[in-house]
Design a protein around this nucleic acid. Structure first.
Lengths: 190, 190
DNA sequence: CGGTAAATTGAAACACGTTACAGCCGTAAA
DNA sequence: TTTACGGCTGTAACGTGTTTCAATTTACCG
């Protein structure tokens, strides 16, 4: 019988174990032997579901984005000003990342690892963030099924991503991430 | 006697060997045992000069930025339009990276690795790029010795960096990197 | 020249991502 | 029930980043 759950229960347990380890010790603490044993799974099984450590952490990111989408769907950005709305979306997303700094560092390192095997998942991540941004800008009625996002959304997303990577590398703090997005939003939405 | 060369001759040979290996096979091909033997140096010596593989590749980036600075100093961006000037600077920088894709991938992975030991060097890199951008925008007379760069320059730099990381990950091609910077420049310099 | 401190060497060892594989188990078909 | 098959387990092995260290070389000072 087919399983119609989004991800198999086993894969989900693996992701949860990886997240728990990453929260405590970041990228290096996610030792795949530990992940497997914490999830009650053999190492070979982990590698059957995820091609690499980075693949696993990017899958964890996908789960995080889902909860972000759910939150924003229940609590859409308020405000008459598009700038306020879009900045508040990025503020929520940033706060979600910075709440668990070590997990965020591990995930960002994986996303930015330039691994060609992750292109599809990384593109999907960017697409989902751009969709959230477009919703904040133009409202949910502008349904874009594909990857046609507004130039404004793409620019803001790039600024946000680069700032997050900078934050993960210790260049600046969480507040600066949101501040940089706000500055960019001021330029883009004039 | 003190050596007043920017980097010691030994360290320079190590960087050159790492660059040669990275050009051929990217990040994974930079096996530090190979780097050391190619440079005619023991592994311990390599680790005396560079704390990690990423540290070494970020040092290679610093050398690349120096040649970019030299080029732009001899060939400053022409054009009466600030947008044209700043886009051409990023086009030159992008082309310099994309000319050796595997080296660029290795370097970008290192820069984006969120390693707290590299904060200083990564900040220096961003500062030098921002300085080049500001020179293209406002001319070389605006000498900013410190890290006070225009908000426009910082936004464009973030867009450029995020696009480069996307290019390294296979999300889009070299032309798209410059295109994204051009779009952002249109927004920022209105 | 002799002496001292720092740098270098060569090699061993460790940790962890990753791969490979032999045996087991559960399911489904016959 | 028997058979076949696909996933899971446990474990061993390999490669490479990183650390460590004793012995050696180099550079410099008196």
């Amino acid at each position: 019988m087919f399983q119609f759950t989004a991800v198999e229960e086993r894969a989900e347990r693996i992701i949860e174990s990886a997240v728990a380890l990453a929260e405590k010790g970041g990228f290096e603490a996610v030792r795949l032997r530990d992940v497997a044993s914490d999830a009650g799974v053999a190492l070979g099984t982990l590698y059957r579901h995820f091609h690499s450590k980075e693949d696993l952490l990017v899958a964890a990111l996908a789960a995080e984005v889902t909860t972000l989408e759910d939150y924003l769907s229940s609590n859409p950005a308020r405000g008459v000003n598009p700038i306020d709305r879009v900045v508040s979306v990025f503020a929520v997303a940033t706060s979600g990342m910075c709440r668990r700094p070590r997990l965020a560092q591990a995930i960002l390192k994986s996303v930015a690892s330039a691994n060609p095997n992750l292109t599809e998942q990384v593109a999907a991540f960017h697409g989902r963030i751009a969709a959230l941004t477009d919703t904040a800008l133009h409202g949910p009625e502008t349904e874009s099924n594909g990857n046609d996002h507004s130039a404004e959304a793409l620019v803001l997303q790039q600024v946000w991503f680069a700032s997050l990577v900078g934050w993960a590398g210790g260049l600046h703090d969480q507040e600066a991430v949101v501040s940089k997005v706000r500055v960019a939003a001021g330029f883009v939405l004039s």
